[in-house]
Amino acid sequence: MRNYFYAYHGPKNKDNFDFKKGYGVSGEKTLKKVKVGDSVFIIQNLNKSFYELCGLYEIVKIQDTKVGKLRYRVELRDLSNLDDLIQLDEQGLSKLLPKTTGDKRRSNFQRHFCKQNYSFQRPLDNEVISILKSLLPKKNQLQEHLDDFDEQVKEALNSSKEAREERLRKSPKKPEKLTVTTTFFKRNPDVVAEALIRANGVCQGCNQPAPFIRRKDGTPYLEVHHKIKLANGGDDTVENTIALCPNCHREEHFG
Rank of each mutant, 00 (worst) to 15 (best):
Y8H: 13
K21T: 00
G22A: 04
V25C: 10
S26P: 02
S26Q: 12
K29Q: 15
L31R: 14
L31S: 13
K33R: 14
K33D: 10
K35T: 09
V36R: 13
V36A: 12
G37A: 14
D38K: 02
S39L: 05
L46N: 04
N47K: 11
Y51P: 01
G55R: 00
Y57Q: 05
Y57G: 08
I59S: 10
I59T: 08
K61G: 08
K61S: 13
D64R: 08
K69I: 08
K69H: 06
L79V: 02
L79M: 08
L82T: 03
D84E: 15
I86M: 08
L88T: 04
L93Y: 07
L93D: 00
L97A: 07
P98S: 07
G102P: 06
D103K: 14
H112D: 00
F113I: 04
F120A: 05
P123R: 04
L124W: 01
N126M: 13
V128M: 02
S134W: 06
L135I: 07
K138V: 10
Q143F: 11
K154R: 11
R164T: 01
E166P: 00
E166F: 00
K170T: 04
S171Y: 02
P172H: 04
E176L: 03
L178C: 07
V180L: 13
T181P: 00
T182G: 06
F185T: 15
R187C: 03
P189A: 02
A193V: 01
A195V: 01
A195W: 00
L196C: 06
L196S: 07
G201W: 10
C203L: 09
Q204E: 15
G205R: 03
P209F: 14
P209D: 08
P209Q: 09
A210K: 14
G218P: 05
L222M: 08
E223T: 10
K227H: 07
I228R: 15
K229C: 04
D235R: 11
D236K: 09
C248F: 03
R250K: 15
E251W: 05
